[in-house]
């Protein structure tokens, strides 16, 4: 564990807390893409199958349980909570996300490190995580105005990926640890998807103005 990896995990955790805070305090999920949240739930469930087969550390186990349970809870809130679900922007959140699931499943069946159930699921979850933010970014762009907590949620999610890249570079030099190329390529793609968002986020931060994305 190095400082970049820890910062990455913490920004990931903060992003989820910010999202829960938004839903809890405003009793609203406007601006939040259910499609993206469903994809994250699928990502965590398929990636953390090793919870039942391998023990790495208490930290690792706790984080995995937190990620799986929080993502399921968020999906539940948007779909079923009697107040929260009323604010769901259904008409704006039309991304055909199951196509992404299908494409990533095919890719994982073709490109993986080892042909085993767990390894194919792991590769699938890495591919899917890389593109899971797309419905959210499309929703934000369509709605134009982005409220503060939603903007911060996406910002922390992007920061998490950026820290993971620094972590891989650090591990390469300090531990001669080669991060698997599937992770590296997907991680770079995932981070790049945030580039546009980051650009507008920093402009609004610099000007101390509300975050607006161009149509």
């Amino acid at each position: 564990m190095n400082v970049f990896r820890f910062a990455g995990d913490m920004t990931h955790l903060i992003s989820i807390l910010v999202l829960l805070l938004k839903i809890y305090t405003t009793k609203s999920c406007s601006g939040i893409s259910l499609k993206t949240q469903e994809l994250y739930a699928v990502v965590f469930v398929t990636r953390y199958l090793d919870l039942v087969t391998d023990f790495i550390s208490v930290y690792n186990t706790v984080m995995k349980v937190v990620f799986i349970s929080s993502s399921l809870a968020i999906v539940w809130c948007i779909r079923r909570h009697k107040v929260v679900r009323r604010s769901y922007d259904k008409e704006l959140d039309t991304f055909r996300h199951w196509l992404l699931v299908g494409a990533c499943a095919v890719l994982a069946l073709v490109v993986h490190e080892k042909f085993s159930f767990q390894e194919v699921c792991w590769a699938f979850s890495i591919y899917l995580e890389a593109v899971a933010i797309l419905p959210q970014l499309v929703l934000l762009q369509r709605s134009g105005n982005v409220d503060n907590l939603t903007g911060q949620y996406v910002f922390f999610l992007g920061a998490y990926r950026a820290f993971y890249i620094l972590n891989w570079i650090y591990r390469y030099y300090s531990e001669q640890h080669f991060t698997r190329w599937i992770s590296c390529v997907s991680g770079i793609v995932q981070t790049a998807l945030y580039a546009d968002f980051f650009y507008y986020y920093f402009i609004s931060w610099k000007n101390n103005s509300k975050l607006q994305l161009p149509a």
């Binding site: 090793d50 391998d54 698997r180």
Partner: peptide, 10 residues
């Protein structure tokens, strides 16, 4: 290189 099957990152 593919060293072990354990994924130590989240």
């Amino acid at each position: 290189s593919y060293e072990s099957e354990i994924h130590d990152e989240l």
